[in-house]
């Protein structure tokens, strides 16, 4: 894992990030924008989790010395748990913010009768 090969993972995450970003800025429908934001968010989480990965390591759940027929527990390498902790809470906060966004969209729909950005702008300026 060196040079180009070590970066492919990050590049794949960036591609996903940009797919979400494109949905966010190119589509006019507000619900679609929120879906795009969700994809973007998942990609960012993936980026953080990638930073915590160590090749050949295992999940950060400590193996007790008695668990596997004794021995070897000292030589196990664990991945970095800190990104996992931060991203775990970020996912739950993400769904909370998503719901606030969706409720705003619902209220916009009730006020304007549409959730399309262009339509809303036209109604605002045409009044």
């Amino acid at each position: 894992m060196s040079g180009m090969l070590g970066m492919v993972n990050y590049w794949a995450v960036i591609v996903l990030m940009m797919v979400g970003f494109y949905t966010l800025i190119a589509r006019g429908n507000l619900v679609k924008k929120l879906i795009g934001l969700n994809i973007f968010q998942t990609a960012v989480i993936m980026m953080y989790v990638s930073f915590g990965k160590i090749t050949g390591a295992t999940a950060p759940i400590l193996i007790q010395s008695g668990d596997h027929g004794g021995g070897g527990a000292e030589h196990v390498v664990y991945s970095n748990p800190i990104p996992h902790v931060l991203m775990l809470t970020a996912i739950v906060v993400g769904v909370a913010t998503l719901s606030v966004g969706l409720s705003l969209v619902v209220r916009i729909n009730e006020a304007y009768g549409t959730v399309d950005e262009d339509e809303i702008n036209r109604k605002d300026n045409g009044l």
Partner: peptide
């Protein structure tokens, strides 16, 4: 509590026809 409340908030609302 929050997840159930969020679900109630969205599911308990009627659609308003424009």
């Amino acid at each position: 509590g929050v997840m159930v409340a969020l679900f109630y908030a969205f599911a308990g609302r009627r659609r308003i026809e424009p």
